[in-house]
């Protein structure tokens, strides 16, 4: 990075540190912070979407759909997320490839499962065998997002389901009295009002989501924990220009500070959002706001 970095062993401390902290490996660590933030930014709305679908399904009039929604919520919530992560990504990947295989290679005669191997035709591979590396990375990232969204979607569904039931039934009855049909009641009355009831649960979920990101490396995404472990481990002079002892503690301390700061920031933002959403609502907090004004 800096011009004086050619011979790190002879540098004074601060210059050594400056060089050390700007090695290619450290750059990867800084990049991975961006990866984690990007993942959070994409996963949160996706999980909310899954949650909305799950909650709507769980209160659907059509019984099989209702069962599906409730089973989805119950199963995913009953299993530790880590167990899910350990096999779900591979399962998801194989499922996609299998579906593509059936569509793209109808005249393929060999078995897809050959012993332990999972073999699909070359055209069905995801990403294609000759795709450039960045496509593989984007695909790996996308499956990680999808896995996170499925797991956290179940939790979001749970929260939204509760919120939908918390909207006072008088509101829905009034809507019916005004001649709205079920669909109109759902979209015009229920959905706009449920958010204030859902927000405490959703903000809690957001906090959980933040704290689940150290498990990203299980999904094949090289996240901050991966790099902290890799960089912190002691290094012998033979394989690096920057030998050092076991520094994992310092790297993990940095991670700790990162997570605490991020949590604090989220708390502040969510509190403000809550104050805005409460405005004009028929809840205790809304009442308090009205009186204070």
């Amino acid at each position: 990075m800096f011009t004086f970095c050619t011979d790190p062993a002879s540098l004074p401390d601060w210059q050594w540190m400056a060089c050390y902290l700007t090695t290619g490996k450290h750059m990867s660590l800084y990049w991975s912070v961006g990866t984690v933030l990007l993942l959070l930014a994409i996963t949160a709305p996706t999980a909310l979407l899954f949650g909305f679908g799950g909650a709507s399904a769980a209160r659907a009039g059509f019984a099989p759909l209702r069962w599906f929604g409730k089973t989805y919520i119950a199963i995913v919530r009953g299993v530790p997320d880590i167990a899910f992560f350990l096999f779900f990504v591979i399962a998801l990947d194989q499922m996609f490839e299998y579906i593509r295989h059936r569509i793209l290679c109808p005249d393929w005669t060999e078995a897809v499962r050959q012993g332990n191997d999972f073999v699909v035709c070359a055209a069905a591979k995801l990403p294609l065998g000759n795709a450039p590396q960045w496509v593989h990375e984007v695909y790996g990232f996308a499956t990680a997002v999808l896995t996170f969204a499925i797991v956290f979607g179940a939790f979001a569904a749970n929260v939204l389901y509760g919120a939908m039931r918390a909207v006072p039934s008088a509101q829905l009855e009034t809507a019916a009295a005004y001649g709205m049909n079920q669909r109109q009641t759902f979209w015009r009355i229920l959905v706009p009002q449920m958010w204030v009831y859902a927000l405490p649960g959703l903000s809690n979920l957001w906090m959980v989501l933040i704290k689940a990101t150290p498990l990203l490396f299980l999904l094949g995404v090289e996240d901050i924990v991966y790099w902290a472990r890799e960089l912190g481990g002691s290094k012998t002079p033979r394989f690096t220009d920057y030998p050092h002892g076991d520094w994992r503690m310092w790297y993990f301390l940095a991670l700790l500070v990162f997570y605490l700061a991020f949590t604090k920031l989220s708390e502040v933002v969510l509190d403000r959002l809550m104050a805005r959403l409460t405005h004009g609502q028929a809840t205790a907090a809304g009442e308090a706001q009205r009186k204070a004004a």
Binding site: A212, P214, L215, M249, F252, Y259, L260, T263, K264
Partner: peptide
């Protein structure tokens, strides 16, 4: 409460 709720359990185990 803030420290234990604000950091991942993964990191708490490490420390």
């Amino acid at each position: 409460i803030f420290i234990f709720r604000g950091s991942p359990l993964f990191i708490q185990f490490f420390f």
